[in-house]
Design a protein around this nucleic acid. Structure first.
Lengths: 210, 210
DNA sequence: GTCTATAGAAGGATAGAC
DNA sequence: GTCTATCCTTCTATAGAC
């Protein structure tokens, strides 16, 4: 794959957008290998020639899809972080945890994670690009937040990176693990909230300032 | 895919084993879609006709590979659990954590996890079969162990399932997450040991009997 | 930019000889 | 069981007209 990080998105012709929409839906649902350019063209309502007029190759099209998905993930993460303010650490963490977990367990998020993990072997740089633009950035913001809370004496996270990893690891826990494997019915809101509460509970026992 | 859970392995002709070896290596390295039956036959040193004499289809061959990989995972997990005994909870947990994490981060383990996650969309039953035979069984054994330790007063894990998920979630943390995405160099022994120590540290602050 | 039609290659699976 | 040779489908990508 050439130029994964250098994908233009300034062109917004209707046909191009239709291709992006169809390809995005198909790729994240069925994976890279199982989706043909014929099917994408048909679903988008354009001819293959038009498709290739906008995207030089299947690789490039895939790169564009994943890059845009990353940016959406960043936007979501930023929203999450910005929405959290308040003095009750437990309430803030629980709210944040619930929102993050809901995002991680959303069918679209899971599908994107699956397809990225799937194609790491084929496109080695894909994993890093995805991580830096998505989960890594969220983690960075969370780490900074933990550090600020520690600085003002509301938490005792001497190693904010480690604390962030442990919090997020516990949060993902079994729900995310099983969801990634497509096991069982989707998690209910109660399960998600309960997992967030339990995570915060354990986390605060280790990192509470008091 | 038909009969994922019902794969015979009683035939051990040399050619058949050569096919299994080559296909296993190729599938976990490059994924299902990127490996052709031609390449498998060539790598195994047999003709395609011979390949199809032993495996009815590419699907069936893939199912056999993954099923056998699951059984290896179960064997590894059982070994891990059996090896742990002792009275110093912290030492036992740290040893166990380090071994589990080393197993999870092994290139072959990561490759299998990647290919299973990748093909969940194509083979819906694959995720459940893999989980039940691999990670789920390990988790069950760990849960039972936590429960016993709680019963004899060495731990205070009122909800052993939850405690197991939190322990394993923290243990995977960022190392497994990044490794699955193929980011950066493989984790060093020091990083693994350090992650295990940190996980046990946080875990025991929440679930210590004292 | 957009289409129809097709080239050229590769894939899964099989026929028939031994 | 094993091989060589091949069929048929599907795939990516492009040529050429409008």
């Amino acid at each position: 794959m050439s130029g994964l990080a250098d994908v233009r998105t300034d062109n917004d012709s209707p046909k191009r957008l239709a291709v992006l929409e169809a390809a995005g839906r198909l790729f994240v649902t069925h994976g890279y290998g199982a989706v043909s350019m014929d099917v994408i063209a048909r679903e988008a309502g354009v001819s293959k020639a038009t498709l290739y007029a906008h995207f030089a190759s299947k690789d490039r099209l895939f790169a564009t899809i994943i890059t845009e998905a990353c940016h959406q993930g960043v936007a979501a993460a930023t929203q999450l972080a910005a929405a959290e303010a308040g003095t009750d650490i437990r309430a803030v963490l629980t709210g944040l945890g619930g929102r993050v977990l809901r995002f991680l367990l959303a069918p679209r998020t899971l599908a994107i994670h699956r397809v990225v993990i799937a194609e790491v072997a084929r496109f080695p740089e894909l994993g890093a690009v995805f991580y830096e633009n998505g989960p890594g950035r969220s983690r960075g913001q969370f780490t900074a937040w933990l550090q600020r809370q520690t600085a003002i004496g509301r938490l005792a996270a001497a190693d904010p990176d480690l604390a962030a990893d442990q919090f997020l690891g516990m949060l993902r826990g079994n729900l995310y693990h099983r969801a990634l494997l497509g096991i069982g019915p989707p998690a209910t809101q109660d399960e998600i909230d309960s997992a967030a509460v339990a995570t915060v509970d354990t986390f605060l026992r280790a990192y509470s300032a008091a």
